[in-house]
Design a protein around this nucleic acid. Structure first.
Lengths: 169, 169
DNA sequence: TACAATGATTTACGAATGAAACGATTCATA
DNA sequence: TATGAATCGTTTCATTCGTAAATCATTGTA
């Protein structure tokens, strides 16, 4: 008693048991579920990502924030526009340099960020509900090691910078 | 001595160390890299996915194949069109039922599938180059366990069925 | 002052996907 | 065997999404 429809006549293929496929499968699944969950805070993952980074570095320019998470400038504009429309972030002119827009969280922005963090924590819990504490730690350690060995910069999400992860294996 | 640009003035944020973020980050990274790699075989991940499934169940209908990997019918049309144009797959009418198009690999389709498998194997190797044999096995086991506990059906890739994995955490 | 570089923005365009409508065919049943 | 429901594949359409390139304002430099 497990999955929903177990009347599959079609046998599993080789590719779907490789690490690459598993990683991609589980990773994208986690992304999608998180995307749905964070929707309850009225935002979507890119907005949440940026809220987090601005919180960690308030007063930085759009450019600096975008560079830190490898998001193209033209996309940053759209993201910040959206955050500003919702009253979560403020663009303030910088005294020294009138080209720069320094970014700050509003009070409401902090609220939403907190709400988002709770949602993320719940998401996290749901994700590991089938694992023991030890397994959870091991999985994190292995993924970190993998990320490091593959040169994936910390905090940079590929879905935000590059094309879009297609699929398969 | 590690990453490329370590002149980061912006400190890491909390979110980026969670399991959910890591999974999504690493999973999408793996997807993208694989997508580039499989391009050398002249195909992209969805095509490769379908080639694999057709190989595992030749003669099945478009509908059956699509259902097995949860791809909407209208999307199957485009995918099979593409595979057929490249001479990798054949749509054959089914004697008993004239509505059905049974799918078969062509000789060229088998060649490309083999080539794709080699590419996938190389991708796999590259992915685990920083891990020991034991760690590799552990990671697979943990991901499998996670997938199962989360009800992710084997062989079904979320990127093929649902919206598209956005991002972050 | 002229010219290059930078930060932010706008515009135009293309790629991808799914929901829904459609035609053809088959099945169930009266 | 006639009729309506269901199935398979296809087409159409609208939408979402993101980038690349052009643009504007400002600053730094020669």
């Amino acid at each position: 008693m497990n999955a929903a429809n177990d009347d599959r006549k079609i046998p599993g293929d080789k590719a779907s048991s490789h690490l690459g496929f598993l990683l991609s499968q589980v990773g994208i699944f986690a992304s999608q579920r998180f995307s749905e969950a964070i929707g309850e805070a009225g935002i979507h993952p890119p907005l949440f990502r940026v809220l987090n980074v601005v919180d960690a570095a308030e007063g930085e320019s759009q450019h600096a924030i975008g560079e830190a998470i490898q998001v193209p400038a033209s996309r940053m504009v759209a993201i910040i526009d959206e955050l500003e429309e919702r009253g979560l972030i403020e663009r303030r002119p910088q005294p020294g340099d009138r080209r720069v827009r320094a970014l700050f969280l509003t009070a409401k922005g902090r609220e939403v960020l907190e709400q988002g963090r709770k949602i993320a924590a719940a998401h996290e819990q749901k994700l590991i509900e089938g694992l023991s504490k030890k397994e959870h730690q091991e999985l994190i350690a292995l993924l970190r090691k993998l990320a490091e060995s593959q040169g994936i910069p910390s905090g940079v999400h590929p879905g935000l910078s590059d094309p879009i992860a297609h699929t398969s294996e």
